[in-house]
Amino acid sequence: MANQVEQGLIKPLYDAMQKERFVTLATIDHQTGGPNVSAISWVLAKDENTIYFAVDNRSRIIENINKNNLVVINIIANESTYSIQGEARVKEERMNEVPLKLALVEVTIKEVRDVMFYGSKIVQEVQYEKTYDKNAAEKLDRQVMDAMKKA
């Protein structure tokens, strides 16, 4: 059912965000003041009110959040599309247990909205594969997700 609004993650969304997955992140561009959308995959629901994600600490995403902390995470899960609005802050400038220079960002959820258009459902979720060394990618993914779970 479309247009449902929650104050936190419903269980199917929380469960879907317990592993790496494709989501988009909207921030306010620090230079133009317009919207900026990025695709990310290192995302984890810490609890029903908090989401963590990891990105390169030199990313435009970090610059945008430092200037304006309002964000929207868009996720396709539970046969629908959800817009998760919140306030972001850089929790760790550099994640210690990860070999890349990644920042850990914490999002405090303000609203979760089912934004799927009326009378429809998602029948197949987005799938992707890493295009670099598969073993190295799997190792890095494990390191990042484990570090976020410990944070």
Rank of each mutant, 00 (worst) to 15 (best):
Q143H: 07
V98G: 02
D114K: 09
V72Q: 02
K46P: 00
V90W: 04
Q124K: 12
E6T: 04
D47E: 11
K121V: 15
M95R: 01
M116E: 08
Q7C: 09
E106I: 02
A54E: 02
E20N: 08
V90E: 02
T50R: 08
N68K: 02
V123W: 08
H30K: 10
P99W: 15
F117Q: 09
E48D: 11
V72I: 15
T32R: 04
E79A: 10
N66W: 04
L100I: 13
I84W: 01
A147R: 03
E6N: 13
I75Y: 06
M148C: 10
I75F: 14
A54H: 00
A39I: 09
E92P: 00
I122F: 06
L9V: 05
R60N: 15
E111T: 14
V37S: 06
R89E: 14
N66I: 07
E106N: 03
V55Y: 00
M116T: 15
N57V: 12
K150E: 05
N57R: 12
K149H: 08
P99M: 13
Y118K: 04
Q127I: 10
I61S: 01
S59C: 09
R60D: 15
K134P: 15
V112K: 08
V90Y: 05
G8Q: 09
T27V: 01
M116C: 08
I62D: 12
N3P: 02
K130L: 04
V144L: 05
E138S: 11
Q124S: 15
P12E: 09
S83Q: 14
I62H: 08
G86I: 04
V98I: 06
K101D: 14
A16D: 12
K101G: 06
A137K: 10
I84Y: 05
I10K: 00
I40Y: 01
V43K: 00
I51M: 07
E97P: 01
M145K: 01
N49T: 03
Y132A: 14
K149Y: 02
D56L: 04
S120V: 11
S120K: 13
S38F: 02
I28H: 01
K139W: 13
I62E: 03
V98S: 07
I122E: 13
S41L: 00
I10Y: 00
A2R: 02
I122G: 07
I28K: 10
R142K: 13
E106C: 08
L70A: 09
R113A: 07
D141S: 12
S83H: 11
L9F: 03
I76G: 07
G119L: 06
D56K: 14
L25M: 06
M145A: 06
P35R: 03
I75P: 03
S41G: 05
N96L: 05
V37T: 12
Q127V: 11
N68D: 08
Y14H: 06
N36S: 15
K46V: 08
T131A: 14
N57Y: 12
H30F: 07
M17S: 11
A137L: 13
E111S: 13
K121C: 14
A147T: 02
M145V: 04
D133F: 11
W42A: 01
W42Q: 03
V72P: 00
D29C: 02
I51F: 09
N78P: 06
N3L: 05
G8A: 13
Y132F: 14
N49R: 13
K110S: 09
M1V: 11
A88G: 05
F53C: 12
E63Y: 09
E87A: 03
V72K: 10
V115A: 07
A137N: 14
T108I: 02
